[in-house]
Design a binder for these strands. Structure first.
Lengths: 371, 371
DNA sequence: CGATTATGCTCGCCTCGCGAGGATAATAGG
DNA sequence: CCTATTATCCTCGCGAGGCGAGCATAATCG
């Protein structure tokens, strides 16, 4: 079981490896590798497909991928304005993907819409895993300011009581995906930050997300980096959240609080107006300075950026880097962790949601449950 | 080797367990437990001593402890004003302990003093592990403001090239010790904070310290929670560091920057003067508010406090808790992680230093090196 | 002083991974 | 087209190490 688990985890993390590569990576003998893969094929967990002609010499090594009848996860992403339901197989490939925009943001309406595409009686389904734009504890959404939700239990998304339900913050899960399969691939300590409306993220150490005691870790937007007098909808004051998004840019420009801060942010970002450019620069600098502080505290190898933060990196990299450097302790300035754009885009949350579900599956117990 | 390692780690984490408890905890058969302990006794790693009369029925179970000729770590603590050199055996017991105050704070002088008690040719010595009051990357001290050191390499403390040298921040290592053997025992996610001159700490998840990519993680004092205009010796501005210690209290009282902020802090803390009490209250509140922000971001089960933070908790708990609650997101206020005083006191850094060294020893390779 | 309770020890069994030796499948070169 | 070369896969006997049944041992209870 030990060896089988190691193989399965390696295939999951590196879909499309050859058996020879796997044997070397795990330090197995070729005999053990043969026996273990044979067992996993019988269990309908992995499939070996004929090797593509590499052009190199020697006997070709078969490629290991997810079994076509293997376990799948239903990954759900509930964002500020849209939702997505995907089926994900071992190795992180999306084999089905449905999405839509919220017609009505009320919790009931959104959950009804999202529930439709969730398969109801699929023996292959091992878990429903939800990424949601809000603060999460266990399987409850305790606070989702932009959706206007408070204390919503997602248990209704469970197709039957036997299927486990997992819930996490969308920015945190996107960060996990980014660390494992995106810009942070093969990096030990990755700090991911997403700015949409407010800011979220996660620290991923050796592939493990630091989600804290209750699952509400990674709420970096509620560190008091901002103006101590400014009240945040979260209940605290001076949150960084309020200083780095469309609300902050509108405030900087003397505009009223926008109804849809994310769209407003994009509008200002695309504008050629000098005042707008200045506001973008100032907010990007503020974001950068906070990133510097977080890097001081958490010491990552790499920072990955999504959403509006990714846009700042693309549009005003000097401002972002100036703030970043300014916020760093001087000894870190010689070789600061690079800021990199997210590689997974809007697929991050669903891929991350599937990851945590597969983490539970790829254990002694999870495998035992799969026979 | 697998089973032996598990047993050894369990004995290290729970010194003084009986073999019966261990067998149950690891789910071993009594036969395996017997064979493994026999092997570990031959290897001079553990010793079985006769069970003390528990008064209960049944055959008594022998107690497992460190072997008297087993491996030891030389743990060194270099603080602002004093140093300590201890010998630590498996299980975390200090079997030797020498300390002194710095006569001269220059790096050379301190290292000379500290080098004396380090055993030179002890076959039992597996590592020298140093806790130091400064920022650390690898085995270098990159910045230690209160000692006045910059870029000091501690390689001179290595008694011979075969003995590994480990270096870490004292507050981070004290936090690791606290999480494993102190107030955070058996708790999944522990946030530890120490205030002496400035603030340091660590997040410990499942017993693993989140020391980051270079070992400089846990520098929570350099999060920009403070006044954006105030320059920190670290090179950044607005550091929390400057708002929570003796310097902050002196500033609040309109006094000049104290030469020894730690002593000054204790003096103000012990004073009955109303202005002094008010300053203490304000600084404790500021500290509490920052702790709230950190709890928002990291979501620990428990926060442990050392040094001046521990004194605040003892002397002005209302102020500290008021700030703490104020800094928390409102959904966390119903059941916030408790703030607990450190249980290990000034032994924290050396115990933590020994822990990281034993972590390296209690591996396949570490055990192979011990024959 | 037996009964009860709890634990330790012995020993055959079984699982799983190792590794040597031969088989297999590709390219390279004549 | 055929052989050499390279790289990998498969078969199979071996050995390490953990399991668990059955018995031995050591304490308290009444």
């Amino acid at each position: 079981m030990q060896g089988a688990l190691a193989v399965l985890r390696h295939v999951h993390a590196h879909p499309g490896v050859t058996r020879a590569e796997l044997t070397r990576a795990l330090g197995l003998s070729s005999g053990s590798a043969a026996e273990i893969t044979a067992r996993l094929k019988v269990l309908r967990l992995v499939e070996e497909t004929e090797a593509p002609a590499t052009g190199g010499r020697g006997r070709p090594s078969p490629v290991l991928t997810a079994h076509p009848d293997g376990p799948v996860i239903c990954a759900v992403d509930i964002g500020h304005e849209s939702w997505r339901v995907a089926t994900v197989e071992l190795g992180g490939r999306l084999v089905g993907d449905v999405s839509g925009r919220h017609a009505d943001r009320a919790a009931g309406a959104v959950l009804d819409a999202v529930r439709q595409p969730i398969p109801q009686a699929d023996r292959r389904l091992r878990a429903v895993s939800v990424a949601v734009a809000g603060s999460v504890q266990g399987t409850r959404i305790v606070q989702a300011a932009t959706l206007g939700w408070r204390d919503v239990d997602l248990a209704v998304l469970r197709p039957d009581p036997g299927v486990p339900l997992l819930v996490g913050n969308d920015a945190s899960l996107a960060g996990l995906a980014e660390a494992r399969r995106g810009a942070g691939f093969d990096t030990k300590v990755v700090l991911h930050l997403t700015v949409e409306v407010g800011l979220g993220g996660i620290l991923v150490v050796d592939g493990r997300p630091m989600t804290g005691a209750t699952g509400a870790g990674g709420e970096f937007g509620h560190l008091p980096f901002g103006d101590r007098e400014r009240q945040c909808p979260c209940g605290a004051r001076g949150c960084w959240d309020l200083e780095v998004d469309g609300r902050a840019m509108a405030r900087d420009l003397g505009l009223p609080e926008p109804r849809d801060p994310r769209t407003e942010a994009d509008r200002i970002l695309r504008s050629a107006d000098a005042a707008h450019r200045a506001a973008v620069t100032r907010v990007a600098t503020t974001l950068g300075r906070g990133i510097g502080g977080l890097v001081n505290a958490l010491d990552p190898d790499l920072v990955t950026l999504s959403g509006l933060a990714r846009s700042f990196l693309a549009e005003v990299p000097e401002a972002l880097h100036a703030g970043y450097t300014d916020g760093l302790m001087s000894f870190r300035r010689a070789a600061p962790p690079p800021l990199r754009p997210s590689a997974l885009g809007d697929q991050g949350p669903v891929i991350g949601a599937a990851e945590v579900a597969f983490d539970a599956l790829l254990t002694e117990e999870g495998l035992a449950a799969w026979e």
